[in-house]
């Protein structure tokens, strides 16, 4: 068994590579604008919120610039949500390919997760680049911390995505419950405010949500003028490790139950 371990790792890399190429074909290749749409859609969402804020005359708290405030809020949240939603359906969408013994549900999830995470990072980068050109953003205070939190948020999404994927495999009905949950979650994740400005009782509740921590930490890393008081990196990392652990464990436990044909 052990003599194959080195090769089984390279087989997995080959499989994940083939899956990513296959995902690109269907996710982005079916229409002519293809991959462009995956990038345009979140930009569109950002622009809608930008116009809403401008029209209502609202400004972000603490003198933060609007575009990076929205990028670290709405865009980060949508990136998180999108990765989970795509992972949830990953096994279902690749059912036919799971017949090949080389391909496990985990490979399918990793392929999708990598693709969604890199698309998200590209989108985020484009927004920052665009707002830099139009002089809508201050220089980023700590770019490395920012990237670290962005990746961490995607890892958190990967862990939850694995859990939901297995749950969806066993009980497809949960799909119906998710839509209102997502809508509520958006308002509970500090997308439109920072945790620091909340009254104490509300703050205690919102501070249970790791996404709210990630959003505040992103803003802390972005703006020199803002230092989050409540958000805690270790709290976010604990959630990330926890979700990855549970997600991967569930995949391992239920891998053999792939409901083929």
């Amino acid at each position: 068994m052990n003599k194959d371990d080195a090769t089984s790792f390279s087989v997995q890399l080959i499989v994940i590579n083939a899956l990513i190429l296959r995902e690109i074909q269907t996710r982005f290749g079916t229409s002519n604008i293809g991959y462009l749409w995956a990038i345009v859609e979140p930009l569109f969402v950002l622009i809608v919120f930008f116009l809403l804020y401008e029209l209502l005359g609202r400004t972000p708290p603490g003198g933060m610039e609007l575009v990076p405030f929205l990028a670290t809020g709405v865009t980060a949240f949508y990136g998180f949500q999108n990765t989970i939603k795509r992972l949830e359906k990953s096994v279902d969408a690749n059912q036919g390919l799971l017949l090949y013994p080389q391909v496990t549900p985990l490979d399918v999830m990793i392929a999708r997760g990598l693709l969604e995470a890199s698309t998200f990072l590209v989108v985020f980068g484009l927004i920052i680049f665009g707002s830099w050109i139009f002089d809508l953003t201050p220089p980023i205070e700590s770019p490395l911390v920012l990237i670290f939190i962005l990746i961490d948020l995607q890892l958190l999404a990967f862990g939850f995505g694995c859990m939901f994927c297995i749950a969806f495999m066993m009980f497809p009905v949960i799909d119906r419950f998710m839509s209102p949950v997502w809508r509520a979650l958006m308002f509970l994740s500090g997308v439109f405010y920072t945790m620091d400005e909340l009254p104490e009782m509300t703050q205690d509740w919102i501070a249970l949500n790791p996404i709210a921590h990630a959003v505040d930490l992103l803003r802390g890393a972005y703006f020199a003028s803002y230092t989050p008081e409540v958000a805690s990196l270790s709290y976010l990392l604990e959630w990330t490790c926890g979700s990855l652990f549970v997600g991967l464990m569930l995949e391992r436990m239920f891998r053999h139950r792939k409901p083929n044909s």
Binding site: V15, N17, A18, L21, R22, T26, Y100
Partner: peptide, 14 residues
Amino acid sequence: SLSAIENIRFVSRI
């Protein structure tokens, strides 16, 4: 959902 060519690409690659 994939065409024959896309399927063949995948199977050949793995």
